[in-house]
Design a protein around this nucleic acid. Structure first.
Length: 859
RNA sequence: GCCGAAGUGGCGGAAUGGCAGACGCGGCGGUCUCAAACACCGCUGAGGGCAACCUCGUGUGGGUUCGAAUCCCACCUUCGGCACCA
């Protein structure tokens, strides 16, 4: 053994210098992590019912390879919350898993060879190991890996139930297509020319038969957020995404021409049937099925070229209102059903095939895009609704777009003089009588396209038979396993299409040779029900355990990135409702409360990704400062819902704070050089004053910190703990240190800090027990302390005084003093008198005993 | 472009109708040290003043109010989403 006398002497060489061992997180943290695991301190017993349940869910990660600082940012405040709730007596379930299917694994395999499975599992292994260094209290026994057949077979099983109920269907729709690499994801289409990321070929559209889920069947139910406590902006975004529009479908008949006999029906959707008299042309989506049939031979070339061009554009581009409007007349006319007028038919890319009926009546007077197109083509613009202060004949420089409810109809044939809403109803009713219109609700929400032409996903369990058509794979044949070997042939298209052993099957109905579906499912399918599976991950007789889901769901608190505001969070709601309708679960909503944390960006302000090379590895920081410092720093950085570019600047301050807590708790009587007042109570303060001040500070902090944890305000929570530590530091080494109030304050400080910095608090707790000769118990099994309001109560307080809204002085008054007393104190202030300069206040505003404002008229 | 969010010291941020800048970083000064580091103490929005103090100040412009960083209107900038990244 080395003689340690020297080093002890060195550490102690300055008088009054700290005598305790230094805070060394690297020695402490792994020890406690092992101890917690050994004791199973945080393995949730889902069968236990003696305590209320609390299901805390954090969005499971994609196994991209390494745990970066963004994962810590997402997980560690959630873990603090889990620990906080446990201290409140809840049986907390805080599971974790991996969203293991998806494009990156496949890209890695195409690029570097190997198998997506190998790549994914290696990453998961690594991330599991890194997760443990956080000290996060995950219920690892309930882990779910979506690429495991034990999970994805239930995607298949659930798909088949949806198919039985008519919630899944097949329809032809377009994908971005590269002739060499097959279907491309949006991120694989590059540049304004839209080229393939791998081979550089121009991307085209290809129509494929694909599988959809009927999300629109639940559109109205998804618009209701009853019974769930979600942030308002998220509810607004989902509401707008669903985009319910009430209006009418109206049939226009085509007029006979040289090349077309007429009489074909074009159904349009409009939210403004009252403006039908102003329809001066029609616009079809370039993809509309009637385009080919109606196009005049002389217009064919131009129309075909326009259609081809439109199909290459993105929807964002097509719908952009500031882009110049383009369109082509197809050389056919339609008849306006209200007045028999012949109006020309156009195609234009701002009309989408997938919204409404894929065709509109164009009313340039009252729609900006129609106005732009009418102006470009010199088409008539006929006003139907008068803007306030305008007359029917006034020239229009712009479309007048407003709400029907408070408008007056003009120029509307026999409906003149009606309000716009009534006019619309009247027009629809009249047309409906002859079967040419019907009131309709349309949604912007589209059904969910779940087909992916890729290997690394859940195989869609259907078989195509020449005789029996689409045949579901029988339940007893599930799972349809992905073949173990995969040959990408150095290309991007779906290797399942070239795997004969996978493709060739016999029809489950007739036994004849048939072909297996090669599309796999969107990974959002996996994430649409994983929290149910966490409750019974090993179950083999069904996707969920009904007794478990009844007891534990809905999830009490879900946390995750705001980037999932619409897609994942809407799919999850849809899936829950669909499972409910299949009788599998009993709830309408998946997540009772939602919190969307912000995103940590790279130092360059961009999203962290390996390809950008801006991924921040926390291991170095954890090695230098310890997990507790990194956890606390991430919470302290700013509001959790904000995120922002990563910078470790300032982490030293958080580390210093933990050191100060260590010193306060383990060496309360020590003194440091540098403080001229060290060892003395503040001037004019007795030991009793000091004790009361310490107690008040501790309980005020407890009150505020409890509210901050509850409201996810972790940054101010840490700031208030720092303030308390600063207050206690002023009393360190004085006679107040170590007295009853001091010990209570230290105890509260440790308990409040325990959820956020679990290792250092556990270590101090254990040392204190040892020092006092008590047996060890974990700080994480303690109850959250109770605020003593009497300790916080004050007898006098300071009131700021303003004159005309400008701060002039502060006066001290007794707590609870009446307005007359306060006014007397205010007017007695020399500063106030000086500022008044002989004037008398016209008004005196008392802001609830918190502030006084004297209003003086005339400068 | 459309939907949602955010703009406050040199920096991260606090205050969501009532004292702008809590807490922390950085900077400056000091104690300790042979010295440095660590630790500790003090100061630190800008401008003016010897000082007491005064003036200005929360992206820009307007408005509501006794009082606005906070509420309303318009605009600018940045971030998230826009249906095959997850």
């Amino acid at each position: 053994m080395t003689d340690t006398a020297d080093t002890t002497e060195t550490a102690d060489r300055t008088p009054g210098r700290t005598r305790v061992e230094r805070y060394d997180p690297t020695a402490i943290e792994p020890r406690w992590q092992a101890r917690w695991a050994e004791l199973g301190l945080h393995d949730t017993d889902l069968q236990e019912t003696s305590r209320p349940k609390y299901y805390l869910l954090t969005m499971y990660p994609y196994p991209s390879g390494d745990l970066h600082i963004g994962h810590w940012y997402i997980v560690t405040p959630s873990d603090a919350l889990a620990r906080f709730r446990r201290m409140h007596g809840y049986n907390v379930f805080f599971p974790i898993g991996f969203d293991a299917f998806g494009l990156p694994a496949e890209n890695a395999a195409i690029k570097n060879g190997g198998h997506p499975f190998t790549w994914t599992m290696k990453n998961i292994e690594n991330m599991r190991r890194q997760f443990r260094t956080m000290g996060a209290t995950f219920s690892w026994k309930h882990e779910v890996v979506t690429a495991d057949p034990a999970y994805y077979r239930w995607n298949q099983w659930l798909f088949l139930r949806f198919l039985e109920r008519g919630l899944a269907y097949r329809q032809r729709s377009a994908v971005d297509w590269c002739p060499n690499d097959g279907t491309l994801a949006r991120e694989q289409v590059e540049g304004p020319e839209r080229r393939c990321w791998r081979c550089g070929e121009l991307v085209e559209k290809r129509d494929l038969d694909q599988w959809y889920l009927k999300t629109t069947a639940y559109a109205d139910e998804l618009l209701s957020f009853d019974g769930i406590d979600w942030p308002e902006p998220i509810k607004i975004q989902q509401t707008n995404w669903i985009g319910r529009s009430e209006g009418a479908q109206i049939d226009f008949e085509t007029a006979p021409t040289d090349h077309h006999e007429g009489g074909a029906s074009i159904r349009v959707f409009t939210t403004r049937p009252d403006t039908l008299f102003g329809a001066t042309f029609m616009v079809l989506a370039p993809e509309h099925p009637l385009v080919t049939e109606l196009t005049a031979p002389g217009r064919r070339a131009e129309v075909d070229a326009y259609v081809a061009q439109a199909r290459r554009r993105t929807e964002i581009d097509r719908l952009s209102t500031d882009r110049e409007k383009t369109g082509v007349a197809i050389g056919a006319d339609a008849i306006n059903p209200v007045n028999g007028e012949r109006i020309p038919i156009f195609i234009a890319d701002y009309v989408l095939a997938g919204y409404g009926t894929g065709a509109i009546m164009a009313v340039p007077a009252h729609d900006e895009r129609d106005f732009a197109l009418a102006t470009a083509f010199g088409l008539p613009i006929r006003r139907v609704v008068a803007a306030p202060g305008t007359e029917a004949g006034d020239p229009m420089s712009d479309a007048y777009v407003a709400h029907a409810a408070d408008e007056r109809l003009v120029n509307s044939g026999r409906y003149d003089g009606m309000g716009a809403d009534d006019g619309g109803r009247a027009i629809v009713a009249a047309l409906a009588e002859r079967g040419a219109a019907e009131p309709t609700v349309t949604y912007r929400l589209r059904d969910w396209l779940i087909s992916r032409q890729r290997y690394w996903g859940t195989p869609i369990p259907v078989i195509y038979c020449e005789r029996d058509g689409i045949v579901p794979v029988p339940d007893e044949d599930l799972p349809v396993l992905l073949p173990e070997t995969v040959d990408y042939r150095g290309r991007g298209d779906n290797p399942l299409n070239h795997d004969a052993a996978f493709l060739r099957v016999t029809c489950p109905r007739c036994g004849e040779a048939a072909r297996r579906e090669t599309d796999t499912m969107d990974t959002f399918v996996d994430s649409s029900w994983y929290w149910f599976r966490y409750l019974s991950p090993d179950r083999t007789d069904g996707p969920v355990d009904r007794a478990m889901t009844d007891a534990w769901t809905p999830v009490d608190q879900y946390t995750g990135g705001a980037e999932h505001a619409v897609m994942h969070l809407l799919y999850a709601r849809f899936w829950t409702k669909a499972m409910r309708d299949c009788g599998l679960i009993g709830e309408d909503e998946p997540f009772r409360r939602l919190f969307n944390q912000g995103q940590i960006l790279g130092a360059d302000g961009e999203r962290m990704s390996k390809s950008r090379g801006n991924v921040e590895d926390p291991d170095e920081l954890v090695g230098r400062f310890g997990a507790d410092t990194v956890r606390l720093f991430l919470m302290f950085m700013g509001p959790w819902d904000q995120g922002g570019p990563w910078s470790p600047t300032g982490i030293g301050g958080v580390h210093r704070f933990l050191n100060r807590v260590w010193t306060l708790a383990l060496d309360p009587h020590g003194r440091e050089h540098g403080d001229p007042d060290a060892g003395h109570l503040p001037v004019g303060e007795s030991a009793a004053d000091a004790a009361a001040a310490i107690r008040a500070a501790a309980h005020r902090t407890l009150r505020d910190v409890t509210e901050d944890y509850d409201g996810f305000r972790f940054n101010t929570m840490v700031a208030k703990l720092m303030e308390l530590a600063n207050t206690l530091y002023r009393y360190r080494g004085t006679e107040a240190a170590g007295d009853t109030e001091w010990d209570e304050a230290i105890r509260l400080l440790l308990l409040m800090l325990a959820p956020a910095a679990p290792h250092i608090t556990e270590e101090i707790w254990s040392r204190q027990a040892t020092g006092a000769g008590r047996p060890w118990t974990s700080i994480h099994e303690e109850s959250w302390p109770i605020v003593d309001e009497r300790a916080i109560a004050v007898s006098v307080h300071e009131i700021p005084v303003q004159i005309n809204g400008k701060l002039r002085d502060r006066v001290v008054v007794a707590t609870g003093a009446d307005q007359a007393t306060i006014e007397a104190a205010v007017l007695a202030s020399p500063k106030v008198q000086a500022a008044l300069a002989g004037r008398t206040p016209d008004r005196i505003i008392h802001a609830g005993g918190k502030l006084v404002n004297l209003v003086v008229r005339g400068a």
